[in-house]
Design a protein around this nucleic acid. Sequence first.
DNA 1: AAAGCTATTAGGGCATGGTA
DNA 2: TACCATGCCCTAATAGCTTT
Length: 335
Amino acid sequence: MLAEGPKTTKQLSLGLKGRPSGYAQIYSYLRLLQDCRLIYKKGKLWYIEDDVKKILPSILDPKTLKLYLAGTSTALKVLQSLPFQFPYLLSAGHYWNGKFRLPRELKFASEIFVDSGAQQFYRYFNGLDYPYSAIEYVDFAVNLGANLIATLDLPLDILTPRGLDVKAGLKKTVDYGVNIYEYAEKLGISNKVVPVLQGFDDASQWLECLDLYKDHGIQSDIWGIGSLCMTKSIKLVSSVIQQLRNELEEKKLHVFGLALNALKKVFKFIDSFDTSAWVYWAKMDGAVFVWDPLRKRFIQLQARDGKRYDTLSLMRINIQAIFSMVEDLNICKNA
DNA sequence: AAAGCTATTAGGGCATGGTA
DNA sequence: TACCATGCCCTAATAGCTTT
């Protein structure tokens, strides 16, 4: 309450308790805060100390980088074997085979973010059309208990090199978004919809995509950033994210499939990301990664001669490494 | 006089740790 | 295991002060 402006003890006690008898308690707490140099009093009014005011937002609402783990088949088994819960990014495309089949055993997920999964199965596209409708997709997400649902989008990073015009791709992406949003609104769950922004090779395209959404009256507290998962250009990633952050100052940003070396550059500007990197490292060369918090990098280790470890174990260990990276970045984010 | 403020006290709830 | 003492935190109540 004090963050909103100076207040008298009476105002604070009424606001906190709703009745004046709490006055004495509130007053003694205020005195305590005063002793700690967190607040001070001038006349009848209490004020927050200036330096406290500066860090207050990060105390009340700490910036946390949220990681959604992604993975299917073998990797999913690893996720199921972990002794704790964590946010999970589910790729809807993996559950489509003519119709949607509900996944079983998602107990490990503390929350579920459903993604269109176009990257994995764009080869099934009929032209620019998803094989399933917005309604089928949203119903599927609702049935499996999704907390967040990404709009169906066109992965321009894949489709543009195959001849899709950028402007046409953006328009189609937003059309999909509008469909999803309208149906979700009918179900009363539009707050779960995460509109996904697309682009190809310049940040202006993502901003244009945002404008298109806004033209259609689409608002959201969380925005998704797509089309960045294949790029090798950290410069592009960082310019897209920074410009969107400027444009959507108060909103949450989720980046799909962010490369970890790019994450290092942009973690301060985003709220969440997802990765399945831990799967590939373990599969590709049996490497285990260890986060080096001083140099903000992964050290890549392989077993000594004569030692071999199974992929599942390596995956589990790499998940731990990713978590330790996120934990470390979160410290930096609030420092 | 009324409103605002300060200091003190009593007692409930709860965790802890000792004892029978 | 049951019981009790202790200390801590919290809240309510209130006496008595100062400011408006």
